[in-house]
């Protein structure tokens, strides 16, 4: 592995190969909880983009000054502060979205993805590539959420971003409920796996 990966590869890793939702299974709580509607998924995604990018940047900036023993508490304080700031901004400017995300907004603090990236990437890399890593991971996360939310909202409530597409009689409302999240996510993961397996066997053959 090259000592310093290119920014592009850093960025695209999060989006596809190391997608936090479908490959790494990081931050699954919100993955399942807020994907009842595309709007919520986008809102959560935006929140994660903000927190992850800034957290990665800050952690990377201070990486050489932080004593190893207390790095995790320090990361947590930074992330928690960022989440608190995010919470306050969202409550102030998009109160409806903040209300529908509910506790999960605060729970960005404990999203494994964020602490995981701070620990695994930002603490060893330069600020710029940390930003790209955060952006790639966060967007990959958002994409995953939106994909799940798209199917759940479309099939479960017949809408996409609130627009009615499927009439009420043909909706599978279990999908927008808690249980449905597992089903949709499970099916999607199996399909992603299928693609990955196919790729893998191709590369083995090649």
């Amino acid at each position: 592995m090259a000592k310093q990966k290119s920014l592009k590869s850093v960025f695209s890793a999060g989006l596809f190969k190391q997608n936090p939702v479908f490959v790494q299974f990081l931050g699954m709580c919100p993955t399942l909880a807020v994907t009842g509607s595309v709007e919520n998924a986008l809102g959560m995604g935006a929140g994660v983009v903000f927190v992850l990018v800034v957290a990665n940047f800050v952690v990377s900036l201070i990486r050489n000054y932080v004593p190893r023993e207390v790095r995790i508490p320090i990361y947590i304080v930074i992330i928690a502060s960022l989440v608190t700031i995010l919470e306050m901004f969202m409550k102030a400017f998009v109160p409806d979205l903040a209300a529908s995300l509910g506790t999960f907004l605060s729970l960005i603090v404990v999203n494994c993805l964020i602490l995981g990236r701070a620990e695994a990437f930002a603490s060893n890399n330069k600020p710029l590539s940390s930003i790209f890593d955060g952006l790639g991971m966060a967007l990959g996360f958002t994409g995953g959420l939106v994909l799940i939310a798209f199917f759940r909202e479309l099939l479960g409530a017949g809408t996409v971003l609130g627009m009615q597409i499927i009439p009420a009689d043909y909706q599978i409302s279990i999908l927008v409920q808690a249980a449905g999240a597992f089903l949709v996510f499970g099916i999607l993961v199996s399909q992603v796996n299928k693609i990955r397996l196919a790729r893998m066997s191709e590369s083995e053959v090649a």
Partner: peptide
């Protein structure tokens, strides 16, 4: 280091709190 981080974080949070409350 812990103190610095906590103080800076607090300042950031407090500033945002002043704006958004």
């Amino acid at each position: 280091t812990l103190m610095i981080v906590v103080v800076l974080s607090s300042v950031g949070v407090f500033a945002v709190e002043q704006i958004t409350t």
